[in-house]
Design a protein around this nucleic acid. Structure first.
Length: 200
DNA sequence: AGTGCGATTGACT
DNA sequence: GTCAATCGCACTA
C-alpha cells in the first residue's frame, strides 16, 4: 500500500542553491519501480554553489556535468571510485551550473527491497551516505539528466511529517573550500552520515 | 590514445 | 586508524 505523497512542482523549489539544500531536508525522494515503490525522507544534503572550487561545475560545463546546468529539479548522477553513484539535484536557472548532493535518507517505503539491494539489514545503514543512498534507491548513471519534477519514475515529494530542527556544518569528503557551512541535516536523525561532531 | 583520480565504502589492523 | 576496489571521464599530447 503506497502512501499518498504530493509531488513537488518546480515552482516549489527555492531558486538559490543553498536555500534549496536546506529546503530539501524533510522532503521525500521516490523511485517507482515495477517491483514496488522505494521512498525515503531526505535528512542530509550539501550545496555546491556557483563559484565554488569544490563543485563539479566550477571549471565550466563538460559532458559529465552538463545536468548541473539544467533548470532546477533535474538529476545529476556522478559515478565515483568505480563503485558509487551520487545523486544531485540541479539548483539554478538553465545555463548556470550548481546543485545539491543528496547524502542520506530515512527509508520509508520499499525497505525490504532496499535491504536486498544493499545486502544490509540495518535500516539506519541503508541510505546513510551518498553512495549507499543511490544503491538503496536504485539510482545510477541511467538517471542522469532526468527531470525530478516531471511525471516520471524518480521524483521529489513533499514532506510526509513535520521536519525536525535543521543543523548545518562543513561538507564531507572534499579538499577545497572546506570551511564553508553548506551541509544541512536533520538534527538527532539516526539516518545521517558523518562523525558525531557533524551530527550535533 | 594514454594517464590520473574522485562530493565513498567496507573490510581489516 | 588504514587501504584497496574499479569505472567514466577530464586532461594532456
Amino acid at each position: 500500500m503506497e502512501r499518498s505523497i504530493r509531488r513537488l512542482h518546480r515552482t516549489d523549489l527555492p531558486t538559490d542553491t543553498t536555500k534549496l539544500a536546506r529546503f530539501l531536508i524533510g522532503k521525500t525522494l521516490v523511485h517507482d519501480l515495477p517491483e514496488g515503490r522505494l521512498s525515503g525522507r531526505i535528512v542530509e544534503t550539501e550545496a555546491y554553489v556557483v563559484g565554488d572550487a569544490a563543485a563539479h561545475a566550477f571549471r565550466g560545463q563538460t559532458r559529465r556535468n552538463r545536468s548541473l546546468f539544467l533548470r532546477p529539479g533535474h538529476a545529476y548522477v556522478y559515478f565515483a571510485y568505480g563503485l558509487h553513484n551520487m545523486l544531485n539535484v540541479s539548483s539554478e536557472e538553465s545555463g548556470v551550473g550548481a546543485g545539491v548532493l543528496l547524502r542520506a535518507l530515512e527509508p520509508l517505503e520499499g525497505i525490504p527491497l532496499m535491504q536486498r539491494r544493499r545486502a544490509q539489514e540495518r535500516v539506519t545503514d541503508l541510505a546513510r551516505g551518498p553512495g549507499r543512498l543511490a544503491q538503496a534507491m536504485g539510482v545510477s548513471l541511467r538517471h542522469d539528466g532526468l527531470d525530478l519534477c516531471a511525471a516520471g519514475p524518480l521524483w521529489l515529494g513533499a514532506s510526509v511529517r513535520p521536519t525536525g530542527e535543521i543543523g548545518k556544518s562543513v561538507r564531507i569528503g572534499i579538499s577545497r573550500e572546506t570551511e564553508r557551512l553548506l551541509r544541512f541535516y536533520e538534527r538527532r536523525s539516526p539516518y545521517t552520515s558523518g562523525s558525531r561532531s557533524l551530527r550535533v
